[in-house]
Amino acid sequence: MASTDPTHVTENQSREEESLSRECKELIPTLPREKGWTVRYLYLFQGFWCNPHRIQPIYTFQKQFQAKDSDVIVATYPKSGTTWLKALTFAVVNRHNFPSSENHPLLTSNPHHLVPFFETSIYGEMIHDQIPDLSNVIERRIFGTHVPFPSLAKSIKDNSKCKIIYLCRNPFDNFVSLWMFVNKVKLESAPTLMLEEAFEMHCNGTTRYGPFWNHILGYWKESIARPEKVLFLKYEDLKDDVNFYVKRVGEFLGCPFTHEEESSGVIEDIVQLCSFEKMKELEVNKCGTFTRDVGNKHFFRKGEVGDWVNYLSPSMVEKLCKIIEEKFRGSGLSFRMCS
């Protein structure tokens, strides 16, 4: 149960204020703000909506992080299949280090610990002038992020040959998954976020790292301009033919599967190891924690395509279809519901 003790809240606020640089202390009050899903306000930071306690880590990440040519960045909009993509990418990259699934790190560690987020795990707990020690990160280094493409560190975007794998999800399922997740991990003292209210905020773009259409289009356009830099995947395609896309990830990362590996079932082993059913039943994902308030179990709900039909009314579907048609028109990107 999350603590609601006033002393605890004051200590958290004091620690967050201490972690802020002078620039961020001066910046945040000047930013446009709207009601947030899990916080009182979201702030419009660099063109996307951000929780206030994530602005400093992102700002520090942008200034400090130095990408290596061999780095891999797993990028997603929240609740787009992040956990699955992290697991698959980690397994593909490290398949020679852990040839047997019997002692594989994914059996004892959640993918979010093996592939840490820049804005939470790496820079999220740092005082603004501290530099995280990444010397013990096993190469090839793999990191995760929800940060939109334009706000990635310059060393990732322009100063290195590191690779970015982006996974997007049908906006209907994406919304429902995000809404369900938020209500599961909220403080018990906080009111339930009603579906209708959350949907309106989603359609207005005022969600973490949103608007969702800008997030998706940023990576989509970069994948068209620099296909050697950004691999753009769809969650629904991955569900349809995961073997094909695991092979595609290996090719994109410069570590293609050999004929011997394919014939001996290495791809199938990775798919099985990283399957939703397998990961959900692991002890670490039943009882472990990602942060103090978020358990690993919260990252495994259904993993289905089309579950949105059980939640969205016809008028909601019509409204979201119109938004998708408008925002993605001319981009060459479509989703099955509105294609």
Rank of each mutant, 00 (worst) to 15 (best):
Q64F: 02
K154H: 05
F45T: 01
Q46D: 12
K35A: 01
F328R: 07
G330D: 09
L187Q: 05
D241N: 14
V9P: 00
L152W: 05
T30L: 09
D173L: 11
K239F: 10
F48H: 09
G47W: 05
K322G: 00
I324D: 02
R95G: 15
V72R: 07
I165Q: 06
Q66H: 09
F257A: 14
R248C: 04
I323H: 06
G306K: 13
E283N: 07
F118W: 07
E236A: 01
V74R: 02
F143V: 01
E26D: 05
L152M: 06
L88K: 11
E222Y: 00
K302W: 10
H112N: 14
G205D: 14
S177Y: 00
R54H: 10
W220D: 12
V176F: 04
S21M: 13
G254W: 07
L217C: 14
K86S: 11
C162V: 01
S14M: 08
H112G: 01
N97W: 02
E277I: 13
Y311L: 06
S19E: 04
Q13F: 05
E318R: 02
D241F: 14
N296K: 13
D293A: 11
K221S: 14
E304L: 15
V294R: 02
C162A: 13
D241T: 05
Y235D: 06
I127E: 15
M201E: 08
E283D: 14
L195P: 08
S160Y: 04
I324L: 08
F252C: 07
N51R: 08
F290S: 06
T83M: 12
K280E: 12
L312V: 03
V317C: 04
I270W: 02
K184F: 00
G250W: 00
R140W: 00
A2R: 11
V246Q: 01
T60L: 00
V115P: 09
W220P: 08
T83L: 14
V317W: 00
F199S: 00
N204S: 04
G265C: 07
A67F: 06
C321L: 02
R140E: 05
R40E: 15
G306H: 12
G254C: 07
R169D: 10
F117V: 02
F143M: 04
R33I: 00
G254K: 01
A87Y: 15
L31H: 09
V74A: 04
D307K: 05
A67G: 09
E281G: 02
T145V: 04
E125P: 07
A91C: 15
V271A: 02
V137R: 12
G210Y: 13
E228A: 03
P148Y: 01
L20T: 01
E260D: 12
W308Y: 13
M201K: 08
R40V: 03
R15P: 00
L152I: 05
M126K: 15
G265E: 08
P111T: 10
V92K: 15
S160P: 11
G250S: 08
I122S: 03
V185R: 12
Y166D: 11
R329I: 04
Y59R: 10
Y311D: 13
S21F: 14
Y235G: 05
Y59I: 09
S313M: 10
T10N: 08
S135P: 03
L233D: 13
K286E: 07
V176A: 03
K229A: 03
P227F: 08
T145G: 06
F244K: 15
Q130I: 01
H259W: 03
G303M: 05
S155T: 11
V317A: 02
T83Y: 10
A91K: 03
